[in-house]
Nucleic acid binder design. Structure first.
Length: 700
DNA sequence: TTAGGGTTAG
């Protein structure tokens, strides 16, 4: 039996035009407030609405609160919430309904900050909200993470003893789910006397969004047993469930639900394939969507960009421009793509497009531009854009701080952090991550510890696992492995992957093989499907000279059928992206790169470079080790960059993994011998090689 | 009252 029902269709323009005709006729014969108001309620299109508004002004009814409320509602429903705000400001005798309509208009149009401001305005004027006001404002608290405000409104609602209200209760479930408080959300759900499909959807998507897949499925099955039909929202919340995909198969559910051809469902499925790195499957679905909207186009853009296919990313973006499918989200997606691949030239074009399209004052776009420049090691541009912004939020500051961190300017990062506090803006969880990372990259241990202490004690910020991972990294890198280890035992959270990874890296740097071995085993137990841990364990044994153990780790990796992420270096030349993989002899430019590289190695050897064969953690002869070293992806990229760019030009390379000791050493010599600046971004930070010295001062 | 694309870290 099909347990899904279709969602209602929206009013068409034709229907609206029909209402307009009736509006005129009715106004002519019954010029009562009631008839105009009831018509306003049905208008869902801009054109007839403007005409109705004009008619109300002409009829001298613009001070009528009842009509104005309806007009505001109609404007807000068409997405013209600014119009509703103007009308609201002009109503002489606003009532609770006026406030509530404004609030719900703002939340429905995603303007949550303003909604909360309006709510505060009501509090100041001592206007007591009713159930509808509360239900309207709850989504804003949820979306903005205003936990205290949300909880106090919940208390107010209980105190007022309004009684059961499915709208408020469902809003509370949604809000607490967004806060990540699933226990409270479930408590509200369990105490409801009446539940509708929205309430069930709220609790299912709450569990699903918070990573409790099994519980989400359990609730879905319970919902079916209770005889409740699901709808498109139910399917949406189940689509992203890993358990569900693995178990019953998502396609079966979609076909049974009858939403197979729904563009929204298809876009959600695209996202699923993109996240699983199946870009071609996502593209197949994308092509099948008849009316592709902005979201579908942008989702596909993310897919191409994420898969590293730069040529298709650019082609797709150009098509979007041709189809007039560009908005601030697509710009952010493209900026983020440039940021990940270090594509500075394309990034500059995006910056120009931001100015051309008029999104330069948008905070989200702004932080994405700053992040792009920061990830292309162009802090001058990042700072200039930041300086020119009319308004800045925490994300903009954080992008700047982490930019300084990545390039190794720890002091600049701390100064920016202090300026952020002086500006009156509260640092958030990400600020602490950014500033701690910056301290870690620059080796500023004491400063980092002081900031962590201050943020947690003075600012009352509850440290999460990421923060602890940063502190463990900070201590571990500086050699205080035992302190880092003690912290993991003392903290109030159970150590996760990030913590153990940081500890393990520290063990590798400082050759603490005993603890390293213990941590590796913890890591493998925690996430057995990650090839990286086996590699680290093997490398650790190799460093200690335990070749048998190293081999055993590699064998267990092989037998588990896990594949290591291959090391890739990429670089942008004249807007085109070139990618190199270690020992890739089938690269179209392999022969010329090899010849150039041989000459380059001879030159740097003459200047004193000695290959660091310890970087090859395999039990092979030194000759083979040298051969492997000379074919690392970074070296291939450096050679290609020197060949293809003008003398004196900066060579910029992005690597997906961390740079190895030997490539780091060789880059220093290359920068001196060839009189070139090399900017290499690895998985964590930048290395700027200039005149034989690296900006990281060999600390990474 | 609930849904598909996006920024800061990793």
């Amino acid at each position: 039996m099909n347990c899904f029902h279709k969602h209602p269709t929206r009013c068409s323009w034709r229907q609206n035009a029909h209402f307009l005709l009736h509006l005129k006729l009715r106004l002519k014969y019954y010029s009562t407030q009631m008839s105009q108001a009831s018509i306003l309620q049905k208008i869902r299109d801009v054109k007839p609405l403007h005409q109705a508004h004009a008619h109300i002004i002409v009829s001298n009814l613009s001070e009528n609160v009842f009509l104005c409320n309806r007009l505001m509602n109609a404007y807000a429903s068409c997405g013209l919430v600014s119009k509703a705000q103007i009308i609201f400001s002009q109503i002489p005798n606003k009532n609770l309904v006026s406030w509530t309509i404004l609030l719900s208009g703002l939340t429905k149009n995603g303007r949550f900050f303003e909604a909360v401001e309006v709510f505060y305005g009501m509090m100041v004027l001592q206007i007591r909200p009713n159930e509808i006001t509360i239900a309207s404002v709850l989504p804003a608290f949820g979306k903005l993470g205003r936990v205290l405000l949300g909880k106090s409104v919940h208390c107010y609602w209980i105190r007022c003893n309004f009684g059961d209200n499915v709208f408020v209760e469902t809003g509370l479930i949604d809000m607490y789910s967004k806060f990540g408080c699933m226990r409270i959300a479930r408590n509200v759900f369990d105490n409801m006397s009446v539940r509708n499909v929205v309430s069930w959807n709220a609790i299912i998507s709450g569990y699903s969004d918070n990573g409790y897949g099994e519980e989400a499925l359990r609730m879905f099955n319970l919902m079916k047993r209770k005889g409740m039909s699901g709808d498109i929202f139910t399917v949406m919340s189940l689509i992203s469930l890993e358990d569900f995909r693995v178990g019953s198969g998502i396609h079966g559910l979609i076909v049974r639900s009858g939403y197979e051809n729904d563009p929204l469902i298809r876009t959600a499925l695209m996202g699923l394939y993109i996240n699983g790195n199946f870009v071609n499957d996502a593209y197949r679905i994308f092509e099948e969507i008849n009316k592709k909207d902005l979201v579908a186009w942008t989702s596909m853009l993310r897919g191409f960009s994420r898969s590293g296919n730069w040529r298709r990313t650019i082609e797709h973006f150009n098509k979007m421009m041709g189809e007039n499918m560009i908005d601030y989200v697509s710009l952010i997606t493209m900026l983020s793509g440039c940021s990940c691949s270090g594509a500075l030239q394309q990034g500059r074009r995006m910056h120009a497009l931001v100015l051309k399209t008029g999104f330069q004052d948008d905070l989200f776009v702004g932080s994405a531009v700053i992040d792009m420049y920061a990830n292309c090691a162009s802090m001058i541009d990042a700072k200039r854009y930041f300086g020119g912004m009319v308004e800045r939020d925490a994300a903009c500051w954080n992008a700047l701080i982490s930019g300084y961190g990545m390039i190794g300017c720890g002091n600049e990062a701390i100064v920016t952090f202090l300026k952020m506090k002086d500006s009156g803006l509260s640092p958030d969880e990400s600020t602490l991550v950014s500033v701690l990372c910056a301290c870690s990259h620059a080796g500023l241990v004491e400063q980092g510890l002081r900031i962590f202490d201050q943020m947690t004690k003075v600012w009352n910020l509850i440290p999460n696992l990421k923060h602890y991972a940063c502190v463990v990294d900070l201590l571990g890198r500086s050699g205080r492995i035992y302190d880092a280890y003690l912290l993991t035992k003392r903290m109030h959270l159970k150590p996760g992957l990030e913590i153990y990874s940081s500890l393990l890296t520290a063990c590798k740097i400082h050759r603490n093989f005993e603890l390293g071995d213990e941590i590796s085993r913890e890591l493998i137990e925690l996430k057995p499907n990650d090839a990286g841990h086996y590699i680290l364990l093997s490398n650790m044994h190799a460093l200690a000279g335990n070749w048998d153990c190293a081999r055993m780790s590699r064998i267990s990796l092989k037998s588990s059928n896990l594949k290591k992420n291959p090391g890739l270096s990429s670089m942008e030349i004249n807007g085109e992206m070139f990618t190199f993989m270690a020992s890739q002899t089938d690269h179209p430019h392999y022969l010329e790169i090899r010849d150039f590289l041989e000459g380059l190695i001879l030159k740097i050897k003459a200047a004193g470079y000695e290959p660091d064969t310890d970087s090859v953690l395999l039990d092979v002869s030194d000759d083979v080790k040298r051969d492997i070293l000379f074919h690392h992806s970074e070296k291939l990229a450096i050679a290609f960059g020197l060949m293809r760019t003008k003398p004196g030009a900066v060579v910029r390379i992005t690597k997906n993994l961390r740079i190895c000791d030997d490539c780091h050493l060789a880059s220093k010599f290359v920068s001196k011998v060839c009189a070139r600046v090399l900017v290499i971004k690895d998985a964590k930070r930048f290395h700027v090689f200039r005149d034989g010295v690296c900006s990281c001062r060999d600390w990474w």
